[in-house]
Design a binder for these strands. Sequence first.
DNA 1: GACGGATATATCGCTGACCGATATATTGGC
DNA 2: GCCAATATATCGGTCAGCGATATATCCGTC
Lengths: 120, 120
Amino acid sequence: MLTGNESAELVVLSLLSEGASYGYQLTKDAAARSEGHLRLTPGVLYPLLRQLENEGLITSSWDTVRAEDAEDAGEGRKRKWYRLSPKGKRRLGQRVAAYESLRRVIDAFVGVRPREEGTR
Amino acid sequence: MLTGNESAELVVLSLLSEGASYGYQLTKDAAARSEGHLRLTPGVLYPLLRQLENEGLITSSWDTVRAEDAEDAGEGRKRKWYRLSPKGKRRLGQRVAAYESLRRVIDAFVGVRPREEGTR
DNA sequence: GACGGATATATCGCTGACCGATATATTGGC
DNA sequence: GCCAATATATCGGTCAGCGATATATCCGTC
């Protein structure tokens, strides 16, 4: 359920609105917040992050997490941090509004209790 | 927004739970209930009705609407009435439950107010 | 010192869903 | 007689979703 790109964008923008984060962390946060219902798989997440960056909604920067012993000049593990841009904040607002609108529309249907049998 | 098959199914089953109806009527009802936000176009609606019938969620029957002067033996306009089957009622229940679950998940994200700037 | 599981980022391309465009026919108002 | 509205129906090109896959580091433990 809910691996769709539409909701994924909303969720990623929302998480980033709470502070900078990186891919793997977003995956874990999404799962935790939704009690396991939302799986932000690599195949969904990374193309999405790339697209969001291309649209100027988020910015990114690399950060190297070096191992305990720094004697080795090797590169160490890399992390790519993402931050919400002002444009991204605006987009998030739009997406939230769109979601709330959708919510109202669907509620107009599911909120109705069934009548008894028969033709209209 | 919301021309997707998923929501369309929910909406059609929901409308039929209120009484039998036919394609064109469903189109109009959906638009009216959602204040124009939901457009159940022919390309969406008829394949969906067919599929729902194949799955045994709805049943159908033809009905001929004859013109005022019945002297003509011609066929007149046809209407195909759809009714929700017991299986369809169960499915509707499931879909509503799924929607409410999704709603809760998304709300867990959009309900949160942003913190001030900075890394987590 | 090497194995495995977790951490971390990233791309590719198959499948199949979506729905705009299109077709057909009747009815009613002007 | 014509046009808009009513009414049902199919088709197939486009495009997106995402499972599968690749690569590399880190760390505990045996």
